[in-house]
Nucleic acid binder design. Structure first.
Lengths: 99, 99
DNA sequence: TCAAGTAGTTACTTTAAAGTGCGTACTATG
DNA sequence: CATAGTACGCACTTTAAAGTAACTACTTGA
């Protein structure tokens, strides 16, 4: 079994990386707009936020919803598939806090 | 809260990366020697294996035991602290398998 | 004494993730 | 009509992780 096929790595390919856990936890509270996310996650650049949102959308973890308003209005939210990750995230979070 | 302080990232700093999950799972079955690990994890280079073992030792997750024999004999094993990660690892593993 | 097994080290290169700094196009408000 | 807010895109640089290939130093067995 190669590294990419390894189950834990398959999970880490989705929730791993510097910003995804925070992005995930922020969106857990409900849909958010782009700049709202940008303000909620101090230190992330707009470029990286865009990159991550696109990739998570491609992976089926995030949904992008564009509202038909005069002012450009976009919201991002977790898909149902993403919520199945919650137990695993809680486990990691608990360990990280205890350590 | 910066990315590094975020609880999930604190956990990922220890179990994250390309080879650590496999290393962790391999050592869960009991202590192993260097080349035994190298054979158990197809594709890893000796250099990367050394790097990871050293870093995990520094983080208190792995213990290096040198036996006083004629032939160089070293074993690596998980520390008690490392075993507290088991529930979180199982959670990730289960999600990765289900996905 | 030569090959093979033990556990690495060293120097260098490649790759992927993230960061920097700018520009775009639109609307709303004073 | 100028400024600020919306949501990005693009080109480039930096950094960290991993990979490559060769080398060290020891011992055992044929």
């Amino acid at each position: 079994m190669t590294a990419e096929q390894f189950p834990v790595n398959r999970a880490l390919a989705i929730i791993g990386g510097k910003w995804r856990p925070q992005l995930y936890c922020t969106l857990e509270g409900g849909p958010k707009r782009f700049l709202e996310l940008h303000r909620s996650i101090p230190g992330i650049s707009r470029k990286v936020l865009t990159d991550q949102l696109k990739e998570l959308e491609r992976l089926g973890m995030v949904e992008r919803i564009e509202f038909d308003e005069a002012v450009l209005h976009v919201e991002y939210r977790l898909t149902d598939a993403a919520y199945t990750l919650q137990p695993a995230m809680k486990g990691l979070c608990a360990w990280g806090e205890g350590n």
